[in-house]
Simulated assay, not measured.
Amino acid sequence: MKNKIVYTLLILGIVSCRAQTISLDQLSQCENKPDCPDYVYLKDTNNRLNKFVGIWKGAYTDGRTYEFHFIKKENDGGWFNEKFWDRIIGRFIAKDNVGNIIYSSMNNNDLNSMSGYYFDKNLIKYQMYYSGNAECNDKGYVYLSFPDPSNLNQMKLVFMQDMDIIASCPNGYKTVIPDAKGIILIKQ
C-alpha cells in the first residue's frame, strides 16, 4: 500500500512539474528560446485577445474588399506537441473591385484557417499565420494591431509573405492579402 502511495505521489509530482501555465504576456518577453519557460498551456490571463474578436471589414487601394471573422479559442491545441494555448482563429472573404469573391476561408476548419500565435515584446502586435495558396507562396505572417490604442474599433492588418521561391505560379499572380501593405479594418 505504501508503495502505491509513493508511486502515485511521484507520478503527480512529475506531471505537475511539466504542466506549467504561462501567460501570453510572459511569452512575449522572451528574447530567445533558453529564456522562455517551458509550458503546457499559454493562457490569455489579461484578456488581450478579446479586443480582436468580431467581424472586421476593410478595403485595399486597388478596390479589393475584405471581411475578417476572428474568434477566440481557449485551451486550444495539443495535437502534435501537447501544448495548449489561447489564440485567435481567423477566417475571411476577399472580393475583387467588382464584388466577385476571389478567396473565402469561411468554411475552413480551425487547422486550415488563419491561426494566432503570440504578441510582440511591446504587446502591441499580435502575430498569426495564414496560408491561402501555398503553391504561389501566398502564405506568411499576419500582424494585427491598433494604430490608436484608445480606438478599438479600427485595426490595422499587415501580411508579410514567406520568402520561399516558387516557380509554378501564373504570371501576374497577386497575393490575396497585399504583401507588406497595411489594411485598415473597421469593427462591425
Results as ranks from 00 to 15, higher is better:
Ile102Trp: 09
Ile89Asp: 01
Ile14Met: 12
Lys125Ala: 02
Phe119Glu: 01
Tyr39Phe: 15
Asp25Lys: 15
His69Glu: 12
Tyr130Asp: 03
Asn32His: 13
Gln127Trp: 02
Ser23Glu: 04
Lys121Asn: 15
Ile124Asn: 11
Arg87Pro: 01
Gly54His: 13
Lys51Asp: 13
Tyr103Lys: 06
Val15Pro: 00
Lys139Tyr: 07
Val15Gln: 02
Asp44Pro: 08
Val53Phe: 02
Gly78Ile: 12
Cys30His: 12
Asp96Val: 08
Gln127Ala: 13
Ser131His: 06
Ala134Tyr: 14
Met106Gln: 14
Asp96Glu: 05
Ala59Trp: 09
Asn32Phe: 10
Phe68Asp: 00
Glu82Thr: 11
Lys121Gly: 04
Cys136Leu: 05
Lys73Asn: 04
Cys17Asn: 13
Gly63Val: 10
Ser28Thr: 11
Ile14Gln: 10
Asn47Asp: 14
Ile14Asn: 05
Asn50Leu: 05
Phe80Leu: 10
Gly78Pro: 03
Gln20Met: 07
Lys43Pro: 02
Asn50Val: 03
Asp86Ala: 05
Phe84Arg: 10
Tyr118Ala: 08
Tyr66Val: 03
Leu123Ile: 09
Tyr41Phe: 15
Phe84Cys: 00
Asn107Cys: 00
Phe68Cys: 00
Lys51Ala: 13
Gly54Gln: 10
Ile101Ala: 01
Phe119Met: 05
Lys95Cys: 01
Lys83Trp: 02
Phe80Ala: 11
Glu31His: 13
Pro37Val: 10
Tyr66Lys: 07
Gly77Pro: 03
Ile124Trp: 04
Ile88Ser: 03
Ile71Val: 15
Asp44Met: 07
Ile55Lys: 15
Arg48Gly: 11
Glu74Gly: 04
Arg64Leu: 00
Asn75Val: 05
Asn133Met: 05
Lys83Tyr: 03
Ile93Val: 15
Ile22Pro: 09
Gly54Pro: 11
Arg48Phe: 01
Ala19Tyr: 14
Ile93Asn: 09
Lys125Glu: 06
Phe70Leu: 07
